[in-house]
Simulated assay, not measured.
Amino acid sequence: MIDDAQAAAAEAGVTVPVWDLPVRLVHWSIALLVAFSWWSAENEKIEWHIRSGLTILFLLLFRLVWGVLGSSTARFSAFVAGPSRIAGYLRDPAGWTRVGHTPLGALSVVALLFVLVFQVAFGLPLSDEDGIVSGPLNRLVSFAFAEWAHEVHELLFNILLALIVLHVAAILYYRWKGRRLVRAMVTGSSNDYPAGTQGLVKAGIGRLVISLAIAAGLTWWIANGVPGL
C-alpha cells in the first residue's frame, strides 16, 4: 500500500519554476506591442507606431542580452539545439524532461526573435508618405533605400504573422497533449514535469541591472539617430 502511494507520488508532476519574471514580461509585452504596432500602422498613427517600434527594440535588445546573462532557462545556450538534439526529441518527445523550451520550441523562439529584430531594423529608416514623420535612422539612408526598407518591413510582418499562427497552433497542440504552456508563461511555474526535475536557476539582480542598462543605452543611441555616425 505504501509502495503504491510512493510510486504514484513519484509519477505525479511537481511544481517547478520555469520562467523568470523578465522573460514573462518581455514575452507578453512584445505580444501586445506587435498588435498595437499593427493597429497604429493601419490607422496611420505613425508617431505612435514609431514609439511602439522603439519599445519593441528595447525589449528585444534586453532579451538578447538576457539570453546571455539571464536565468538558466532564458539563456540561448540552454535551449538552442543542434540537429542531433532535435532528432532525439522527435524520436522520443516524452523523454524530454528539461524545463524550458523543447528543441522544437526553441526553433520557434529563435525564428520569432530573428524576424522581429529585422522587422524593427527595417522600420527604423522609414518615413511616412509625406516625409513629415520619420524613423530615427531615416537621415542615414537615401529615399530609394527607405522605400525598399518599407517593402521589406511589410513583407517581414506577413512572415511574422505566419510564425505567430504556427506558435499558437503549437501551444494548442501541447495543451491537447496535457502541457499548459500559457499557464507557465503567466505564473512562471509548471507542474507538467516529473518529480525530481530541476527548475530554473535565477540570475542575480546585478545581471538584470546590466542587461537593462545595455538595452536602454543602445535604444537611446538608436532613437536619437545614432549620434556620432
Score class of each variant (00 low, 15 high):
E11N: 08
W96N: 10
L64H: 00
R175D: 13
D128K: 03
L113T: 06
Q119K: 13
R63W: 04
L61M: 13
S108C: 05
Y193R: 08
A35W: 08
I222E: 12
A78V: 09
D3N: 05
L200R: 15
A169K: 03
S52F: 05
S52T: 06
L163R: 09
G13H: 02
D20L: 02
P125L: 10
F145M: 09
V65E: 07
L181A: 01
V68M: 11
F114V: 13
N43M: 11
G100F: 06
V23L: 10
R75E: 03
I210F: 00
G135M: 04
S127W: 01
I2M: 04
P22C: 00
V165Q: 02
T102P: 01
Y193H: 12
A111C: 04
A223F: 07
S29E: 05
G67T: 01
V23T: 10
W38F: 10
W28S: 03
S84H: 13
L112I: 14
S127D: 04
H101E: 04
D4C: 04
E129M: 11
A223G: 12
F36A: 12
A106H: 03
P93K: 10
N224Y: 14
W221H: 12
V133K: 04
F143W: 15
E44P: 02
Y193D: 02
P227A: 11
W221K: 08
A144S: 15
A5P: 04
A170E: 07
Q198Y: 06
V23P: 01
L208A: 14
W220D: 12
H150S: 13
V209E: 08
E44F: 05
